[in-house]
Computed example of a mutant assay.
Amino acid sequence: MARRKISPDESPLALKRRARRINKILAEQYPYAVAELDFRNPFELLVATVLSAQTTDVRINATTPALFARYPDARAMAEADEAELQEMLRPTGFFRAKTASVLALSNRIVDEFDGEVPGRLEDLVTLPGVGRKTANVVLANAFGVPGISVDTHFGRLARRFGWTDATDAVKVEFDVAELFEPKDWTMVSHRVIFHGRRICHARKPACGVCPVAALCPSFGEGEVDPDKAAKLLKYELAPGREELLARMRAGESRAELRAAGFKLDA
């Protein structure tokens, strides 16, 4: 099946309308989309997001319960024994660098922000190991400040959708922000990232079962046969996980699903 083409003369208004139609369809596909890192407060989300570099949210969610039980806030983390912290973070990969970042940002929070994670982007990005992506994740999900979080999934899909041709994360953020109302930025981020993890994979997207295929100029980059594409689905959309999907659609929380014995990995 040939790749669908979007007119190179697509007007800014037509692009905005197409982007919003994609978002509407993704909202129907993933009504349960949320930040997939577990957290109870801004500090936990900040640390978890820093730790999530070069690994999966599933791995971080397996690591942080013990981490935050031992070091529940910035003051406790700032006083952590470096060797002990390294051992706790070893499963996340690049654990020495991550230990240094977590210790440094915790000390900065204690010294400059009285132990509380700041709620402004311009302050967050001054913390060691914190860039715009991490800052936007924290602001959007812990402080309720709308923001677009550009991770590798979001950037890849934004380009495949034709929302931007930029590879720089900040440029992607600004280009996509122009297409949506600010109130929608956070949920657009969640939905696009969900879609990238479940259907629109980096190496072999499952084009044949993609709900936004008709609106995607990159249709055909992956498997277009519906039966073959269905085998590429991951997480709750994967074959054999219908009960998990039904319970997620019914509104059960991630904690409730884990307690019921469901694994939330790919």
Rank of each mutant, 00 (worst) to 15 (best):
P128S: 12
V130T: 00
G131I: 05
R132F: 04
R132M: 05
K133D: 03
T134L: 03
T134K: 04
T134M: 08
A135I: 10
V137R: 00
V137G: 01
V137T: 11
V137D: 01
V138N: 00
L139N: 01
A142Y: 12
A142F: 10
F143R: 02
F143Q: 02
G144M: 06
G144N: 08
G144Q: 08
G144W: 08
P146N: 08
G147N: 05
G147I: 04
G147A: 14
I148Q: 01
S149W: 11
S149R: 09
T152E: 08
T152G: 03
H153A: 07
F154E: 08
G155M: 12
R156L: 12
R156A: 08
L157Q: 09
L157P: 07
A158T: 10
R159T: 02
R159S: 07
G162P: 08
W163L: 13
W163A: 06
W163M: 14
D165A: 13
D165C: 07
D165S: 14
D165F: 06
D165R: 15
A166C: 02
A166M: 03
T167W: 10
T167A: 10
T167M: 07
D168R: 13
D168V: 14
D168E: 15
A169Y: 11
V170H: 13
K171A: 13
V172F: 00
V172Q: 05
E173P: 03
F174G: 00
F174A: 13
D175P: 05
V176F: 09
A177N: 01
A177T: 02
F180V: 06
F180G: 04
P182K: 13
P182E: 12
K183D: 14
D184L: 12
D184M: 09
W185A: 02
W185I: 12
T186G: 10
T186W: 10
T186M: 10
V188G: 07
V188R: 09
S189K: 01
H190K: 10
R191N: 12
R191E: 11
V192F: 13
V192P: 07
I193C: 03
I193L: 03
I193W: 02
F194L: 11
H195S: 05
G196V: 06
G196T: 08
R197S: 03
R197H: 10
R198T: 12
I199L: 11
C200F: 07
H201W: 08
H201Q: 13
H201L: 15
H201R: 12
A202N: 12
A202V: 14
R203H: 14
K204S: 15
P205M: 04
G208E: 05
V209D: 01
V209C: 05
V209A: 06
P211G: 04
P211E: 08
P211S: 06
A213S: 12
A213K: 09
A213D: 05
A213R: 13
A213M: 11
L215K: 09
L215Q: 10
C216F: 07
P217G: 06
P217V: 00
P217A: 05
P217K: 02
F219D: 00
G220T: 04
E223P: 01
E223D: 03
D225E: 14
D225Y: 06
D225P: 02
D225N: 15
D227L: 14
K228E: 15
K228A: 15
A229Y: 06
A230G: 04
K231G: 14
K231W: 02
L232H: 01
L232C: 04
Y235A: 15
E236C: 12
L237F: 15
L237C: 03
A238V: 10
A238Y: 10
P239Q: 13
P239M: 11
